[in-house]
Every structure is written in structure tokens, then in C-alpha cells.
Design a protein around this nucleic acid. Structure first.
Length: 550
RNA sequence: GGCCCGUUGGUGAAGUGGUUGAACACACAUGCCUUUCACGCAUGCAUUCAUGGGUUCAAAUCCCGUACGGGUCACCA
């Protein structure tokens, strides 16, 4: 029996050869220094913030170098796959402004010449390469059962050996004759295909990681599984084949992969290919009970990118935050160039952290707050409306009905050198402007501050409306009138005077302003009162004052 | 347990042997400004770079040990 015949029996129905695929997926025609990167998530649920982090990095790196970034779905594990997993990934990443040049689309089609980009559709490709290894005696069928595997592990533990299928532990199957193996196959015994490792644990592989620098690890000597019983490859093998065929130049992935690096290196060697460059990103951490840990899908809602969408945190803010984590000099650049597109920033490996950063929600919200303050009132209005249509229908209806009031309110103190920064998320807009809408002002309770005597409050409002309020006043005049009101009623119109001799006054101009403010909005914390009154309009102002006078 | 990676303030960090008396940003505190709030401004917040030792005229920066934290040891990715 020749090895070719042997391989045919183990893997029948493989349509093409390795050479066919190598020729089919020729080199990319790109300029010098162009990086080809990819994001390779598995469709096991929502998009993780860590995946987004990697996506932002991969995309930036490719595009700033005139290269290509593609999306590849790693769905080699049917057990973990989630319904609509692929659609979710594609949609979420699109929403988060990640631009792929190649990859699967939501209509089931692919963009790009190196597809299919969904691994489950590449079975024939992987098998062609496994067959080649089989022929070269670099792989062999393994009939090891789960129980046998466990037995080996137990023995290894007993004698304190390293755990795994390697060297002497694997020798029976490594040295099995082709005839014996074929007999088992014919008998219907299920089998996997393993790598026949030629590594030596006593030797070291040294890899120059783009981020971490030189990494030195013992060589792989494990006969890891290449092809599972169902004929689908493991991640590792798919990685080696796909990133070769798709001509990936730089693999950006989480640093939890470092430990399987020696295996990957050996795989490329067995296949006869040059491995890509690796950039192992430190994973985003989360603190719990004083301990750091990888941010987790199960425990942390903020691990899901949808969380930010639901809260109404702008995509841009998330992107900026991820960039600050990604490159330590980004933040400074951004502060100096607030009006430049963040894509103008050049990402560098040397500025990437080698240790995992703690996710800082406060910082994200601060970035978001600042970002929102740079938008126009109309933009904030539109974005809030869009958000509310999905997450707060009543508010959305109100915003549409009262568009003019909403926009004017959002514009108070916005178009200035130092704009207001009232909210960090679209979900916070409502609590900041709700009182501007007549519809909301029927059943309200007032949060009076210093002056709480209702008779005094009524009196202040009465005099103010009768003698002083004029809707056509500009801001200085408007406030001047409030001061006159204070003088008339025995309140200090000048804060400095008041501070010198508080006992000479019933209160001060701040207290009186607060009465008017609360009467009109129920709240003591609002933007400029004069603007609020102007937007409410004279009738509504009167109505609200009458409400209190009862 | 083996193997890897990491360790500068509450957080992200700058720092690559000598104006670092350790930038900057977030958070926090205090004060100023102010009709409230939100801004803005000012000041404060690591006598010290996990720790012990070594190299050097000089170390957060180089070397070794220790501790701690993280990752990984699947027919998961």
C-alpha cells in the first residue's frame, strides 16, 4: 500500500489537492509594507468587547499600511455555535464602524477572492492539506478513545509527567502499520488525524512577537489533533492553512494564544510555509473583589458590545476609548487634535501595552461626555431619537412631536468655547430635558432648596411675573431684573455683599433664582434659566407659575 | 503542578542608564469662578517605580533570585 492509497482511504472524497488550492489563492498584489490582517471570531454568541478591540487594531493596522483586513468566521466547533451567530457578528461589527475589505456578508455571499470566509465551508481545503501531510508521513490516524486518553492522563499525573499525547505515550499509534490502521477504519472505528510531531521539548522556539518582543518557549512535541472525527479541523490547523492561503501577514489575537504558538510554528513548518508575524494583544481585564481577571462573557454585561448600544454610548466614544487602550500615545494625540479624524492617527506596535488593562467605565463615559459636547444640537437630537426608537418608544414619540423644543433645549450653552457636558449617553438625555415638554409637566413634585415656605415662594413668583419678567430681555437684562427683584424683596442681589453680611438679608440672588428655576422645571439643576424660559414661551411660563400659586 | 507572560498612584499610562524634585488623562479632594447644575480654572493626591540582591560614578530603566497577578495545558476558539 502506498501512502497515497492510505491517505485516500482515510480521507476519501477530497475533491482537490493542496497544489490546486495553492495555485487558486495566489499572492496578493500589494505595496511594500502593506499588512494583511484579519479578525477571526467564532460565532458563539454576541461580539465581545475584546473582539472589537482586536478588530479596531487589525483594521487600523491594515488600512494605514495600504493593506487588507478581512473577516473570517471560525465555526469549526458546531457544539458551541449559536443561532444567527454569524449575522450577529457581521451586524455588530458593522455598527461599530469596523470596515472589512473581505469576508462574509449577511446575505450568505462573500466579498473577496480568498473565500469562502466561513471555515465550515472550507472542509475540502483542510482535508487536501491533511492528506498531503499523511502522504509525507507527518500525520497519522488516531483511534484513541476518550477513556484511553483519560487513562494516559492519570498515569502521567501519577508519575508527575507532563500531560498530553506525545512521544512514548503516542508511539503505538505513531508506529501503527498502514494495514492495521486501514483495518480499523474498515471496521468502522472512528478516528482523528494527528500531527506526527518532530519537536523536542528540550529545545526552544524563539518568536519575535510584534508587541511582546522575543518570546522563548519549549518546542511543541505533542501530537495534537488536526482533523476531528467529523472531518473538521481544529482551530490550530485551520489557522495555519487559512492564514497561509489568505496571505495574512500579521496575526493579531489575544495573548491567551501564546501558549499554543509552538504548535502553530511546527504546523507551518510541517506544511512547508513561513509563519506570519504575530502580534499578541494583552487582553482587557476586569476587576472583581480586588482581583483582576479576563473580562467575561458570562459575568460582565459590558463584555457584550450590545451593552453600549443599549445604553446609548456613541460608537465613536467606544472607538476612542479602545484606541486609548490600544496605543498609549493616542490619548495625547487626540487631545491635541480634537478635530482630526481618529483614522489619521498611526497605530504602532511599539506603543501597545504588554500587560492587560483594566476596563474603566468611568473613563469611557468621560470620553463619551466630551465627545457628545462636540456634536451639534441637531446631531444629538437625531442620535437620541434613533436610540429612543429602539429603547424608549414613548420618549421617541415625544421627541418627534416636540422636535423644535428638543433641539433648542439641547442647544443651550452648546455652541460656545466651553460647551455644557450634561450627559455621556443617549439614555441620559431624557432626564436632562424632560421638563421642557408640556406633556410631562402635569403631575410633578418640586424640589425646593433654601426657600421652602410656600407663601414666600408664591410671593416671589408673583412680584417677579408682575413687575420684572419680560421675555424679550437678553441675558444680562434678564438677570438684572432678577437682581432688582431681590433688592425689592430683601434678598442680596450681590453674592459678595451677601457673604460679608448674610444676616442683613433674607437670602440671596441664588436662592431667588432657584425658586424660579424649580417652579419652572421642578429641578434645581438645569442649564441657563433665561434660555429655558424663552424656549418654554410666555404662555407655558405663566401656566407653570399659576400652577404653583394654585 | 509544568510552561509562558506580566508587575510604575484608585485606573489607563509616559519613561529604552544621567534636568524625573516620576509627564499626561480619568477618578478623588479642596479652593476659585458662577443665578443652580454642568463646564472652566487652580491646587493637592507615588519621598518612589512588587520585593531582595547584583552591575555601574549613576538604575523605574541592565542582570539574577523571590513574591504576587494573569494566561495556558480539549476531538473550544
Amino acid at each position: 500500500m502506498t501512502r497515497e492509497e492510505f491517505a485516500d482511504i482515510l480521507l476519501p472524497n477530497v475533491e482537490h489537492t493542496r497544489v490546486y488550492y495553492e495555485e487558486k489563492y495566489g499572492k496578493r498584489n500589494l505595496g511594500d509594507g502593506a499588512m494583511v490582517t484579519r479578525l477571526a471570531p467564532s460565532p458563539t454568541g454576541f461580539v465581545h468587547i475584546g473582539s472589537l478591540y482586536q478588530a479596531v487594531a487589525a483594521q487600523k493596522l491594515a488600512h494605514q499600511s495600504g493593506g487588507v483586513c478581512f473577516l473570517r468566521i471560525e465555526d469549526t466547533d458546531q457544539k458551541r455555535e449559536v443561532e444567527n451567530g454569524i449575522e450577529q457578528i457581521i451586524t455588530s461589527l458593522k455598527n461599530y464602524d469596523v470596515q472589512f475589505d473581505e469576508g462574509p456578508l449577511n446575505n450568505g455571499e462573500d466579498v473577496g477572492a480568498y473565500g469562502p470566509y466561513i471555515q465550515s465551508k472550507r472542509k475540502d481545503i483542510y482535508q487536501a492539506f491533511v492528506k498531503d501531510l499523511l502522504i509525507k508521513d507527518l500525520a497519522y490516524p488516531s483511534f484513541l478513545t476518550e477513556e484511553e486518553k483519560e487513562k494516559i492522563t492519570e498515569k502521567q499525573k501519577a508519575i508527575k509527567s507532563r500531560i498530553g499525547y506525545f512521544g512514548p505515550w503516542a508511539s503505538a499509534e505513531r508506529n501503527m502499520s498502514m494495514e492495521e490502521a486501514v483495518e480499523k477504519v474498515r471496521a468502522g472505528i472512528p478516528y482523528t488525524i494527528r500531527l506526527k510531531s518532530h519537536g523536542n521539548f528540550l529545545r526552544r522556539v524563539v518568536i519575535e512577537d510584534c508587541i511582546k518582543g522575543e518570546i522563548s518557549i519549549p518546542e511543541n512535541d505533542m501530537d495534537h489533533i488536526l482533523l476531528k472525527q467529523d472531518g473538521i479541523p481544529t482551530y490550530h490547523f485551520a489557522h495555519a492553512v487559512d492564514d497561509t492561503l489568505m496571505h495574512t501577514t500579521h496575526v493579531t489575537r489575544g495573548d491567551e494564544w501564546i501558549s499554543s504558538l509552538p504548535f502553530h510554528i511546527e504546523l507551518f513548518k510541517a506544511l512547508g510555509y513561513e509563519p506570519p508575524k504575530y502580534a499578541h494583544l494583552a487582553t482587557i481585564q476586569k476587576e472583581e473583589d480586588g482581583k483582576k481577571r479576563k473580562i467575561s462573557k458570562r459575568k460582565d454585561p459590558e463584555a457584550n458590545v450590545l451593552y453600549y448600544t443599549e445604553k446609548g454610548i456613541p460608537v465613536k466614544a467606544v472607538e476612542i476609548y479602545l484606541m486609548t487602550l490600544l496605543n498609549s500615545n493616542f490619548e495625547e494625540w487626540y487631545l491635541e487634535n480634537p478635530n482630526r479624524d481618529i483614522h489619521e492617527f498611526t497605530l504602532e506596535f511599539s506603543k501597545m501595552s504588554t500587560s492587560g488593562a483594566l476596563f474603566d467605565m468611568e473613563k469611557l463615559l468621560n470620553i463619551s461626555k466630551n465627545y457628545l459636547s462636540t456634536l451639534s444640537a441637531l446631531e444629538v437630537y437625531q442620535n437620541t431619537l434613533e436610540w429612543a426608537k429602539v429603547y424608549d418608544e414613548d420618549f421617541a414619540n415625544l421627541l418627534e412631536k416636540e422636535k423644535d423644543i428638543a433641539i433648542r433645549t439641547l442647544n443651550i450653552e452648546r455652541e460656545s468655547e466651553k460647551p455644557r457636558k450634561d450627559f455621556a449617553m443617549y439614555s441620559e438625555v431624557k432626564q436632562n430635558i424632560w421638563y421642557m415638554f408640556k406633556e410631562n409637566f402635569d403631575n410633578v413634585s418640586y424640589d425646593w432648596q433654601k426657600i421652602t415656605d410656600l407663601e414666600e415662594i408664591k410671593h416671589i413668583l408673583q412680584v417677579y411675573m408682575d413687575k420684572y419678567y419680560d421675555i424679550s430681555d437678553d441675558n444680562d437684562e434678564w438677570f438684572n431684573k432678577v437682581k432688582l427683584l431681590c433688592d425689592e424683596l430683601g434678598y442680596a442681589s450681590n453674592m459678595k455683599d451677601y457673604k460679608k453680611n448674610p444676616e442683613n438679608y433674607k437670602g440671596n440672588v441664588a436662592d431667588v433664582s432657584t425658586v424660579i428655576r424649580v417652579a419652572l422645571t421642578t429641578s434645581s439643576r438645569t442649564p441657563n434659566l433665561k434660555d429655558i424660559m424663552e424656549i418654554l414661551g410666555i404662555d407655558e411660563v405663566k401656566r407653570r407659575i399659576e400652577k404653583i400659586k394654585g
